[in-house]
Amino acid sequence: MEETGKDPKLNRREFLAKGLRVSALVGIGGLAVLTVKKSLAGETVWQLDPSKCIQCGRCATNCVLAHSAVRCTHVYAMCGYCDLCGGYFKPGTKTLNTAAENQLCPTNAIKRKFVEDPFFQYSIDEPLCIGCGKCVKGCGAFGNGSLQLQVRHSICVHCNQCSIARSCPADAFSRVPAGKPYLLKQITLENPK
């Protein structure tokens, strides 16, 4: 202290600063250690659980993107390939054809293709889909529930807090590891769960 020739008062301040600096470093380090134990090397992404989803339609409107990152996915293994498809036709449709007034989808995003009598294949035109879930509701009420909503990670901007998750009434959104980013229901004859 004497060699520096400084005011002793100043040295006390320096000593305090040093002490606080070391304790801050220890504090930050401690916090890091505590949280590192619960961290994972990869990223997480947002995904919705179709088994919780009630098709309220908020996915279409509450995404930060104008055209929501939630889209309908078709699990073909579960599909009954019905002629009268609850996901494709409005209830009470008389003639089962692709006329616009018969379709449940507001954006004509479901394509119906004849396979063999009496089976039809339904596919989603994803760029057209707005994720409103109308077809999902129809399919779940009448059919096997092969149409399911999922967050498309090629479109999702990966917000830290998903704004759809915040407004989801069924608490269906969660963070999932990026290595396993989809939560589709896969109920088939081989996997009857």
């Binding site: 916090l31 890091a32 505590l34 949280t35 590192v36 619960k38 961290s39 994972l40 090397a41 990869g42 990223e43 997480t44 830290n160 807090q161 963070r175």
Partner: peptide
């Protein structure tokens, strides 16, 4: 800040290393 807080308080939440 919020991710770190959630990681401290909620058992099931895992924080990505990049966020930390």
């Amino acid at each position: 800040i919020q991710n770190v807080t959630l990681a401290l308080f909620e058992q099931s939440y895992v924080i990505p290393l990049a966020v930390l």
